[in-house]
C-alpha cells in the first residue's frame, strides 16, 4: 500500500512517468486538433475530433484518478461514494441527450431518409 514510506518511495518513479504521459497527452490533443494533416474525419472540427479529444482527456483523467489519487488501491467505501457520483453524472448526460433528441421524434439517431438537419451542421 502507498501508505508506508517504502511503498511511497517505490511509487515515485510511477508518478514521474505519469506526469510525463500527461504532458505528452496534452501536446497530442493540441496537435490532433490544430494540424490539418492529422485530421481523421473531415477537414476542420467534426465528431471524430470530439471523440478523439475526449478519449485522450479521459485517459489523462483516468491516470490522474488512478495513480495520483490512488484509486488503483483504495478502500471499498471510496469506490461506492465516488461511483455513485459517476453513475448519476452519466445519467444526467444520457437523459439530457435523450430529452434533447428523442429517438421517436428526432432523426438524430435514426435517419432512414437522410434528410434530417444534423445539429452540428452549419
Amino acid at each position: 500500500m502507498a501508505d508506508t514510506p517504502e511503498a511511497v518511495r517505490k511509487s515515485i518513479r510511477t508518478y514521474l512517468f505519469v506526469g510525463a504521459v500527461l504532458f505528452v497527452g496534452t501536446v497530442l490533443t493540441v496537435l490532433v486538433a490544430t494540424v490539418p494533416a492529422l485530421d481523421i474525419g473531415h477537414h476542420g472540427f467534426d465528431v471524430w475530433d470530439a471523440i478523439l479529444g475526449l478519449a485522450i482527456a479521459s485517459t489523462k483523467a483516468a491516470l490522474v484518478a488512478f495513480i495520483f489519487m490512488h484509486l488503483n488501491h483504495e478502500k471499498k467505501a471510496v469506490y461506492w461514494i465516488f461511483g455513485s457520483g459517476l453513475i448519476f453524472v452519466i445519467a444526467l448526460f444520457a437523459l439530457f441527450a435523450l430529452a434533447k433528441y428523442d429517438p421517436i421524434f428526432d432523426n438524430f439517431f435514426y435517419d432512414p431518409t437522410g434528410t434530417a438537419v444534423k445539429p452540428m451542421a452549419l
Binding site: T26, T29, V30, F45, D49, A50, G53, L54, A57, V64
Partner: peptide, 10 residues
C-alpha cells in the same frame, strides 16, 4: 483536463 479540450479545441 476536460475543460481545456472542450473549450479551446472543440
Amino acid at each position: 483536463i476536460f475543460a481545456f479540450p472542450i473549450f479551446y479545441l472543440m
